[in-house]
Design a binder for these strands. Structure first.
Length: 443
RNA sequence: CGGAGUGUGGCUCAGCCUGGUAGAGCACCUCGUUCGGGACGAGGGGGUCGCAGGUUCAAAUCCUGCCACUCCGACCA
């Protein structure tokens, strides 16, 4: 992308409403624009990051055996009356009427819709297990939205729904998502610790929140320090192995870890003092097993081998990609701006032309830029006539992991500079070497 | 929903107390000089002062009501 043709509205001043660092940086880097309390437009840079996060989530959901669908944002109140939640949900649910005065709502979650899909098509135990997920915008009319996209009213959510013939099978489905979540957050460069959680209005008796430790987290959390050193389940994890996944689950739940609501002071005090970890945390994922809570009132059954109708056992599993953008910034930033994990950065590499208009620097930059594109990189070419200092500041602010700095002085000796965003290490190399250094995105 | 604030050009803010017909910096446009860590000079464009009503010869400024947004708390798969 040529910066001169892109839409990147960088702000030099920090908008006054932003209190926490992720919100400030998202506004300054031109990633989002607030349209209303807790409701945001995603600008090109923000959308790139959001899409990259979704791509990682999709890969790990697919790997675990979940199947992607897409359900609507607007739902009929009738389904929610069936489950009993139309009355139970409260003012957080945005209720609307269509032109025929029919009660509709903007979905805060999708258990009812997905259960309706399941009961309509799935009639045999042979069709289970099944896990359907989608990535869709949700709306919850929070009393007090805050912290930018960290706690918005409208937010993107990946929600998966598992269906199984009995509790044991559902337990395995739960472990699959548990494992997929460990892998997803690790790939995003986050240390997310599963903690026993309250099940809230969704109900059920098995639930974990995945918490990222961050100074600006919304809740207080307590856990055993050893979790920080636990290894992420491998890429070749067998998601069909009941024992294998149960082992992973057992290991990752063996030590104490709880949020404030579930905190057991006695159990925490029993941890050796040097292993106690009390910190603030951001909830980035939440998984539930809720049994027949929805299948029973909504009549979702399959026929078993003996011809009997069995109520389907369900679970639901959520990750908030839009909140993750903020969580990643909270976890990765410095004075100059955002430091993304390489896989999530909006651009892989930037070419900074320090003197646009100079024939030699233009030619070298064009060559580098074309080469990077040909090798599959998301490359950003700053071909504007901005001051060099501004170019450095912009590239650092938006967090481009690799920056190739091309100016007339260095070029006179055939040299360019390669800078690593994280840590700021710089290296002067020949133009040829810079070209060779970036071998291809897959490599 | 309780408490506290804020609304003035795209952004950050001054002006309000003590009414007199709107300013600064950044950003933007033009020209020139520049260009290796957010340049400089000259010229220029852009504002229903959140909205409505009231007081007054006169309202960004005073009064009333409303709206929006922010922060603290309660709330929150």
């Amino acid at each position: 992308m040529r910066l001169s043709r892109y839409f990147l509205p960088i702000l030099r001043d920090t908008p006054k409403e932003a209190e926490i660092v992720s919100h400030r940086l998202m506004l300054r880097a031109g990633m989002i624009r607030q349209q209303s309390a807790g409701i945001y437009s995603w600008l090109p840079l923000g959308l790139r990051v959001l899409n990259k996060i979704c791509a990682v989530i999709r890969e790990e959901q697919d790997r675990s055996g979940a199947v992607e669908i897409l359900m609507p944002t607007i739902q009929s109140a009738d389904l929610w009356r069936e489950s009993g939640r139309y009355e139970a949900y409260g003012k957080e649910m945005l209720r609307i009427k269509d032109r025929h005065e029919r009660d509709m709502l903007y979905g805060p979650t999708n258990e009812e819709v997905v259960t309706d899909i399941l009961r309509s098509y799935v009639k045999s135990y042979k069709d289970l297990p099944l896990n359907l997920y989608h990535i869709q915008w949700k709306f919850r009319d929070e009393v007090r939205p805050r912290f930018g996209v960290m706690r918005g009213r409208e937010f993107l959510m990946k929600d998966a729904y598992s269906f199984d013939v009995d509790q044991d099978a559902a337990r395995h489905a739960y472990n699959r998502m548990f494992t997929a979540y460990l892998r997803t957050f690790a790939r995003l460069g986050l240390k997310a610790i599963p903690m026993r959680a309250d099940t809230g209005p969704i109900g059920g008796d098995l639930s974990h929140e995945f918490i990222v430790l961050a100074a600006t987290g919304e809740s207080e959390v307590f856990c055993h320090k050893d979790y920080l050193d636990y290894e992420t389940p491998a890429v070749d994890t067998d998601f069909d192995s009941v024992e294998g996944l149960q082992d992973i689950f057992a290991k990752w739940t063996s030590l104490y870890a709880a949020t404030e609501e579930m905190h057991d002071k006695a159990a925490y005090d029993a941890i050796p003092a040097d292993k106690q970890l009390s910190a603030r945390g951001i909830e980035v994922g939440h998984i539930f097993y809720f049994g027949t809570k929805y299948s029973e009132p909504m009549g979702a059954t399959v026929q078993g081998p003996d011809g009997q109708n069995l109520l389907v056992h369900g679970g639901s599993y959520g990750i908030g990609p839009s909140r993750l953008v903020a969580a990643l910034i909270e976890a990765g930033h410095d004075e100059a701006g955002i430091v993304w994990p390489d896989e999530i950065a909006p651009f892989d590499v930037a070419v900074l032309n320090l003197k646009a208009g100079d024939a030699a620097t233009d030619a070298a930059c064009e060559q580098l830029y074309a080469s990077l594109l040909a090798k599959g990189y998301d490359a950003l070419y700053d071909d504007t006539d901005a001051r060099p200092g501004g170019k450095f500041a912009t590239a650092d602010l938006i967090g481009v992991p690799w920056q190739i700095i091309v100016g007339p002085k260095g070029l006179a000796e055939g040299k360019v500079e390669i800078k690593r965003r994280a840590g700021g290490d710089r290296e002067t190399v020949s133009l040829e070497e810079a070209l060779a250094r970036f071998k291809g995105k897959a490599a």
